[in-house]
Design a binder for these strands. Structure first.
Lengths: 138, 138
DNA sequence: AGCTTTTTGGTACTTTAGTATGAGCGCCTT
DNA sequence: AAGGCGCTCATACTAAAGTACCAAAAAGCT
């Protein structure tokens, strides 16, 4: 927010400077009005692109956030979420066990708990539900 | 492409008109230079936003297309692709069979073929690979 | 320290997934 | 008409996945 205020202040100052420049150039006659207008046009063209890009990027981030609060609300623990990430990568229980340095039994327990918490019957469904709940990147 | 050319032509014409307007207003004195510049600024600001939005939208579409050619290239048949879609929805073989009005054996055959074609060991991995190959919406 | 939650692990079992193989049927192409 | 391809289905099997229940460390909290 502070940044936005700063940028807009700079913009207004720049505009005023341009106004003054155009006046001086008109009086002194060493710069044509067309050049001044062209400068203004280019500057604001770039500003338009810049601001729009920032806005759209923000929208894009907002449209696909992973929501830590929702994870907590579902009672999914840290370790369980790690397992969920591995499942979404397409790993088997054994592979997950190797990657997290625990036994396959442990992973099975985690997965079983995850399925209950995500209200799913299978791991593939768990992935889908998790994405709908915004706790996994789509 | 035609559209782009048309838009840019219109822009150049508009700019020329603005130039002439500013000259006339300067001569006749009934419009200040500042107003002219302000108009140019606003117009190009809007143009900047418009063009940028179009470009970003195009990028967004390009960044996530499902590529029918790639499906064909992998030798995935129409029916197999239907099964793949069901898998990505998190359905079990039995549920897919019911939805497509065939036996579970048939689905198993399709899935087995899909795993080979997608170079996957499990259905969850098949989903991931398919997304990486741009044949499933991310 | 005492209590709770998390993480870990096991056994025993059921269900689902996946493989291998064979086979019949319809459609299209040569 | 014959061969190729896609779709269908079955059997028999192996391998994963998932359930139920229990239990003991480990970590966090008050």
């Amino acid at each position: 927010m502070k940044k936005t205020v700063f940028v807009f202040s700079a913009l207004i100052i720049a505009l005023l400077i341009l106004f003054q420049l155009s006046k001086y150039s008109y009086i002194s006659g060493d710069l044509s009005i067309e050049v001044g207008i062209a400068v203004v046009a280019v500057v604001f063209f770039i500003i338009g692109i810049y601001i729009n890009k920032r806005t759209l990027n923000r929208e894009r981030q907002v449209s696909n956030p992973i929501d830590p609060e929702k994870i907590e609300k579902l009672g999914i623990s840290k370790r369980e979420y790690e397992v969920l990430l591995c499942i979404s990568k397409g790993l088997s229980n054994k592979e997950i066990a190797e990657q997290l340095f625990v036994s396959e039994s442990t992973i099975k327990t985690h997965v079983s708990n995850l399925l209950v918490k995500l209200n799913a019957k299978r791991r593939t469904q768990a992935i889908q539900n998790a994405k709908n709940l915004k706790i996994l990147a789509v």
